[in-house]
Design a protein around this nucleic acid. Sequence first.
RNA 1: GCUCCCUUCGUCUAGAGGCCCAGGACAUAGCCCUCUCAAGGCUGUAACACGGGUUCGAAUCCCGUAGGGAGCGCCA
Length: 463
Amino acid sequence: MTVVTRFAPSPTGLLHVGGARTALFCWLYARRMGGKFILRVEDTDRERSTEEAVRVILEGMAWLGLEADEGPYYQTERFDRYRRVISEMLKAGSAYRCYCAKEELDALREQQIARKEKPRYTGICRERTAPRPGVEPVVRFRNPLSGAVVVEDLVHGPVTFQNAELDDLIIARSDGTPTYNFCVVVDDMDMGVTHVIRGDDHLNNTPRQMNMLLALGVTPPAYAHVPMILGPDGTKLSKRHGAVSVLQYEQEGYLPDALLNYLVRLGWSHGDQEVFTREEMIAAFDIHDVNKAASAFNPEKLLWLNQQHMVRSPPTALIPHLRAQLRRLGTDSDDEQLLEGVIVAQRERAKTLKEMAENSRFFFSDDVRLDPKAAAKHLTADGIAGLGKVRARLAALKEWNAAAIHDALNTLATELQVGLGKIAQPVRVAVTGTAVSPPIDATLALLGRERALARLDSALAGT
RNA sequence: GCUCCCUUCGUCUAGAGGCCCAGGACAUAGCCCUCUCAAGGCUGUAACACGGGUUCGAAUCCCGUAGGGAGCGCCA
């Protein structure tokens, strides 16, 4: 049997890291098993669903590279199908019309809560045959009254629910539109879903869904309820930390593979391996190995992983990402050589591409503004004097490359009987504007002779 | 309140009765390297929620307790 998984977000909010991880697990498992991954948009709540949210979810999935083999399907486009199933169930007796008014049900619920009971529908209309004038009925699923449902969960193991605990849920509203739990059931059935992988907040819905599937005469799929992601403080994910669109991470200069790598390691591991490529993730992933406990989102480890991915990725692959960040800062370059050189020089001193771009502006813009503190510290009378000597040596260089520059500076330092830092720092400030940059030889080499000398001249002229 | 789920270093995790006075990673502290900043290397601090069992032996099995979470909508 071919594995079919699905990611089924509802477009009432954005695609945050929690949803992204669920999607990742679905995608990984399908890829791993050589199966199919379906994307389905659960937009039955017309009040709260927005096209904007749909767009953001689709964009997020695309950025993450979690491509679907089928879909996106939209539940709002399947209403005819749902209606047909409902009328079949009505005919078969596995569903019935309920004429209880909303106010009556609210009152009932309040009484039950007051009595410290679990609020639930008591089945008043189960045996009703005649309609009730003036009330548009809803349709309820006739849940079995006795026995138990066992969810053979792939991450939790068997979980038993007593049917007596389950009430008759509404599958069609009084306006005739189907509800979530019902649509899921029909869709999973129609789309041949074999493995439902979703957040464990759905575990409690599962026995009802299984009962409906059983009533429809189909074998329920396998279920895997994965734990939630918590905020860094161990409480529910909020806007303050992870509950932002995954696209936010693109803006912040993260690589999609790094985010995915971080997310897959939340609740799952493979020996002592921390860094995974996409291919490695697919090869190693198994839904059975996923943990049961919720885990806290740790931005620092994400940062570390992002750097690991930047360092390991081929430099040229980062060029478009770096350029996007440079553009956000108001610069850009199409000099591939320069870009690649900057990436190699900067990737181990930046955690994100955004940071890399910020640290690298001076490579692309000749508008170098000296940091006052750095200038005060290093462009002293002594420093300027050294700068003049450096300028002369560099100007005399036959070859302009890191090794030659390195030799020249080292020789000068030895002659002057000072440490290399004594002359490198003034040069760094003159050329980059700050006291921090990649090694001075590499920096000068990347900048090129003309630009480097011009900047030294500016500093010497005190402008 | 009821039902269901969860519980190893600050955080992510390894661990499926002896290999564990608990291993790795992030973070953190110190040292080394060093032209700055990093990266890297080495070293350190740091955990089996608690209480009972079972067993020659338990982080691992069983039962309780505590704490956390989810669900209980004509929301998804």
